[in-house]
Structure formats: structure tokens, C-alpha cells
Design a protein around this nucleic acid. Structure first.
Lengths: 120, 120
DNA sequence: TAGCTGTTTCGACATCTGTCGATCTCTTGC
DNA sequence: GCAAGAGATCGACAGATGTCGAAACAGCTA
């Protein structure tokens, strides 16, 4: 599989990608990048998977611990990949199992994007 | 034609729909409802429209003020409807123009969903 | 080495989504 | 009443997305 443009932003780049939504209208480019993160949480299955990882002890969980969300195992893997590509999760293999972990900085950025807009 | 409009699900019901994502795994039903809001912000055009409304004075704006996002007028209307159905915006007609306004409570709920998950 | 288990990738498919032009509704003004 | 402008709705269409079963891949253990 020689897909050259496979991984666009697997570098989470925890920088403040996002000015608060009420500070000024987002540019097309800012919106494009920010929407990727929101879209990643815009699917019920992904939201459950993410919540399962986030609520697990240490903020990380094995795939086998969170696969019970009502879809097939390949679909779980597909959604975890999406969350990873959006920078919300990172993964690490430890022997037989693969562990996914939340990226708190990205989460904080998204949260402030919203709460600052709400309180200002 | 009667004055009674359709009004399918435009009652946002600003209740705390969402426990923090790291408190416990979301149920299927919680995820379903929460994903609607994130999905609404998961499109670049909608994100720009929302940001344009949120950054406007008073947190509200006429459609004519924010329509310059590079898509046709029907598409703008379509996206504003999506944001409204997700409970993120509300609309009101004043004479010729229609004004959209942010729903701060829903925004706060979404933000805390993320920031509480990030800091805990 | 072979076999087993956990996870990812592949290929295919039905559905959902974003987009547009055309048209309709509502309000204002003549 | 009629025309004009602001938005919403309709119908159609291409492309994206979620889903699955089958297969490939990666470690462990015998």
C-alpha cells in the first residue's frame, strides 16, 4: 500500500490550533483543521470508544477492554484509527495488546475553544 | 396556510446531557445525543458560520452578515439549520432579516465535557 | 515450527452528507 | 395588488462515511 498522503497530521502538534470561537470568524484553513477534531467526536461509536479510553485508569486502555460497543472488531479498529489521525488518541503496542491513550493537550484546546466562547 | 410551523426538534433542552468523557464510558444513548453536537461542529463551513455568529456583537448575527463563506446561499441555509437542530444556534426573524444566536449553555456543556476530561 | 489470539488492513457495499440550481415563502415598499 | 429582496425548501447528484466478512499481520506459547 503505497499511499503517500496517508498520515496528514499524526503529529498531534498540541499548539493552540484554535482561537476561541467567539474571538473572530475562523479562517477557512483554521476551520478545516479544527473541524477534523470535532468530526472525530461526531460519531456515536467513536464517542463511546473515546469515553471508554478516557475513563479507564491512567487514561489508557487496551483495545480488548473497550471493544464492546456493538459493532464488529474491524469497525472498532477503524474508528480508533480515525481518533488517532485526529490527534485525540495515541497508540502503543505492548506485546500482544495495543493500548490507546488520550491526548490531554488536544482535549484541553478543544474545550477552551468552546468554554472561552461561552463565557466571554 | 396555517401559522403553525413544523418545529420538529428545535427544542434544544439545554440540560446537562453529558457527563465528562472520562467519568465513565458513555452509554449508547448518551453517545448518540452528544455526537450530534460534535458532528454539527465537524464541518469546516459550519465551524466558520458558527464562529462568525459567536464572534459577532451580542453573540448574534444576521444571515446576510455571515454568508460569505464560499458556498451558495442554499448551502449556508442548510448548514445553519443543522447547527440549529443540534441546539447550538437559535434563530429569530426580525422583519426582512433572520438573526442567528449562539446557545451559550450548550456550548458550556460541550466545553466541560472536554476540559473536565482533560484536567481530571 | 505450528498454532492460537489480538489487531489491523482490504474490498465491497449501502447509506449519509455537502453541494448546487431552481423554486417557494415571507416581508417590505411602491 | 404587485415587484423585489432575504431565506428556506426541494430535487438531484457526486463523494464521503460507517459497516461488515475475509484475509493479513504481529506476538505469544507449546
Amino acid at each position: 500500500m503505497s499511499n503517500v498522503k496517508a498520515l496528514p497530521l499524526l503529529e498531534p502538534a498540541v499548539e493552540p490550533c484554535c482561537p476561541p470561537l467567539n474571538e473572530r470568524p475562523l479562517t477557512a484553513d483554521e476551520a478545516e483543521r479544527t473541524a477534523v477534531m470535532f468530526k472525530a467526536l461526531g460519531d456515536p461509536v467513536r464517542l463511546r470508544l473515546f469515553s471508554a479510553v478516557a475513563s479507564h485508569e491512567g487514561g489508557e486502555a487496551c483495545v480488548c477492554d473497550i471493544s464492546d460497543v456493538g459493532v464488529s472488531q474491524p469497525t472498532v479498529s477503524h474508528h480508533l484509527k480515525k481518533l488517532k489521525e485526529a490527534g485525540l488518541l495515541s497508540s502503543e503496542r505492548r506485546g500482544t495488546w495495543v493500548y490507546y491513550r488520550v491526548e490531554p493537550a488536544v482535549l484541553t484546546a478543544m474545550g477552551q475553544l468552546l468554554t472561552k466562547a461561552a463565557t466571554a
